[in-house]
Amino acid sequence: MNARKNQILEILQTNTKPVSASAIATMLGVSRQIIVGDIALLRASGHEIHAMARGYVLANKSLYVITCKHDLNDLQKELYTIIDCGCGILDVIIYHEIYGKIVGKLNIYSKKDADQFLAQMENNGLSPLSEITNGIHSHTLSCPTLHHFEDVKAELKDILIEMPYDFTYNKQLL
């Protein structure tokens, strides 16, 4: 049992995308129900494992926040760039004058995830949250290392906003 839990942790640590209980079960030659039980035991023992729509993600990766400003034309480029640098996009955050901090879950770990998000917006005639704040928004990123995060910042330097930033009024502080 301990060996299997260690194998599950290793699988989650080495994958940058969510891994389903069925996929883990196949890799380890056990049932999906056993994996679900093992995940529950791992969580109870202090491992931070998140359940996503497509499987499990170990939350031992470093979390970083970037703040950007761009229009709808650069949205796909932003998402693809973050993914190509090896990071996942957990959420989008805007700061509204009246409502304060608004967080939308994204959980984008691949170009397929990004394409589905963009298609859902387009097919339903929806706009990104950042339209409310003239393109200004933040993302929480899950990156394997600081180096990966630095790569994201270097690739997106043209749309990044450096802090300090006054989100209350959506303007750069002097």
Rank of each mutant, 00 (worst) to 15 (best):
N2L: 07
R4Y: 10
K5F: 10
L12G: 01
T14V: 04
P18I: 07
V19A: 01
A21P: 05
A23E: 13
A23R: 13
A23T: 09
I24G: 00
G29R: 15
S31V: 08
R32N: 04
I35D: 02
V36C: 08
D38C: 09
R43I: 03
A44Q: 15
S45D: 13
G46S: 09
E48Y: 05
A51V: 03
A51K: 15
A53P: 06
A53Q: 14
Y56N: 05
N60R: 12
S62M: 11
H70E: 09
D74R: 15
D74Q: 15
Q76L: 10
K77I: 10
E78H: 12
E78G: 00
I83Q: 05
C85S: 12
G88W: 09
I89T: 09
D91S: 09
I93P: 08
I98R: 12
K101A: 00
I102K: 14
I102R: 15
K105I: 11
L106F: 04
L106H: 13
Y109T: 06
D115H: 11
D115M: 04
F117M: 02
F117V: 02
Q120V: 01
Q120M: 06
M121L: 15
N124M: 04
S127C: 06
P128M: 09
G135A: 01
H137V: 00
L141I: 02
C143F: 01
L146M: 07
D151F: 06
V152M: 15
K157P: 00
D158V: 06
D158G: 01
E162S: 11
P164M: 07
Y169V: 12
N170T: 04
K171L: 14
Q172L: 08
